[in-house]
Amino acid sequence: MFISETIQYAISGITSGSIYAIVGICWSTVFLISGVLNFSTGEFVMLGGMLTWLFISWGFSLLPAIFFGVACTVIVAMLMERIVIRPVRYPSETTFLLITTAAGSVIRGIVLIACGSDTRHIEPFLGSSPIMIGDAVLLPQVIIVVSVLVLIAGGLVMFLDHTLFGKALRASSINQVGARLIGIKINRVRLFCFGLAGGMGAIAGIVIAPIEFTGYSVGLMEGLKGLVVALLGGWTIRGTVVAGLALGLLEGLGAGFISTGWKDALALFVMLTFLIIRTLDLTSIKKLVYRHE
């Protein structure tokens, strides 16, 4: 009984953890290229789910609805870079934080007005007949969520390591002046990365919608947790995947064995602890410890 309960909690943890990991990758895609902490990353997740629901409610079948949902979110993300981010004349982290937070509210507000405040649901892609692992239930949709994470993370690693354009993206995130001098158009690279983040976020929002519902406000928490795992993972793809799954498991097991109310608090507690530890200067602590030697 205890074992199958644990498996059940772990399954739900890995499910939401996969989404956190994808959202974390969206944060780093934008941040590493443009230095912008994009606080509307979560809204891309929400837009993906809500737009797909909208297209389905207009009578589209699943695949075209997903396609248009992702495409529209990519367009929104790119428009955001072009209209809201690029014209900023005196860029600073605070400016971008305020601007992207505001842009997020606008997107949320528009969706609220257009689609209402009800939570929405997309039918599971492969039906809802569960696969049993002992007494634990594994929904086919969970398998889709995890494979999407594998595809996105794996595909991105392949793209960045083995194509010239991928290498150019890495080069731009390492050294912008060097990148411009070898002829990389930094503005286009930024635009591409916003679009890429929008697309990946939207896919995350679509595949999770049949399990966790979607609605105009789901982006807030998903976005914040994505930031937590991007920070924990050191802004790398591998690190973010590990951190995402770890945070998901921690939440799943914590919610199961302690209480559901602790779920979000646990994630934020992890983030705060990490940020506090990171701001401590390790060398000065060492000096304190070894002072008498």
Binding site: L164, K167, A168, R170, A171, I174, N175, V177, G178, A179, L181, I182, G183, I184
Partner: peptide
């Protein structure tokens, strides 16, 4: 083509990748 002040290489990337990127345009 230019060799800038301070070289502006892509430090964490390999020598080979740095060279290949030179032909980006």
């Amino acid at each position: 083509a230019s060799v800038p002040e301070g070289r502006e290489l892509f430090g964490p990337m390999t020598v080979h990748d740095n060279l290949l990127l030179g032909a980006y345009t």
